[in-house]
């Protein structure tokens, strides 16, 4: 089967039961998408599929054939994406395990609705779990990147 990820086609052979998260990591070699719970709660595996943030652990890879998938590896084009820059500036990550999921969650939300309020951002971010930051600086980083993207 083929997976279309970050603008590239990956020809992979997988069992039907292999989740998209596992296929990205093990079969496409894209280990930036992390696996934290495999039952859809933590959000570490969040990727963007056909424009929407989804849990890659709750979709089988075979289901994603034909879909446009974006992962954290596709975010930076040379230099860091605005949201990645704001995560640096606001110390929005510590161990970095949940970070790819939060980045994809926030990017998808912002692309769908450019004018998210801070309250809406908080609501969006409550979908994923982080154990290091107490969310303080993730919220600040995402708010700042939303402001910057609105202004430019």
């Amino acid at each position: 089967m083929k997976l279309h990820v970050n603008g590239r086609d990956y020809d992979i052979a997988v069992e039907a039961r292999r989740t998209l998260a596992d296929a990205l990591r093990k079969d496409c070699g894209l280990t930036g998408t992390h696996i934290g719970c495999e039952h859809g709660v933590c959000g570490a595996c969040t990727v963007i599929m056909d424009g929407a943030a989804v849990r890659a652990c709750l979709i089988f890879a075979v289901q994603a054939e034909g879909a446009v998938i974006r992962t954290v590896e596709g975010l930076a084009a040379g230099g860091l994406h605005v949201i990645q820059q704001e995560f640096v500036a606001h110390h929005g990550l510590q161990c970095g395990f949940c970070t790819p999921g939060f980045l994809m969650l926030a990017v998808a939300a912002r692309e769908a609705e450019p004018d998210l309020t801070d309250a809406e951002i908080l609501d969006v971010l409550s979908a994923n779990l982080c154990r290091c930051t107490g969310y303080q600086n993730i919220v600040k980083a995402v708010s700042a990147s939303a402001r910057r993207m609105r202004e430019t």
Partner: peptide
């Protein structure tokens, strides 16, 4: 039947559901 899978797939991950065939209606 496999619809959105947001309940069925977690149950499969815990092996509380073990379907032999999945018919994806998406």
């Amino acid at each position: 039947v496999l619809a959105g899978g947001q309940s069925l797939v977690p149950m499969m991950a815990y092996r509380m559901a073990q379907p032999s065939h999945l018919i994806d209606i998406n």
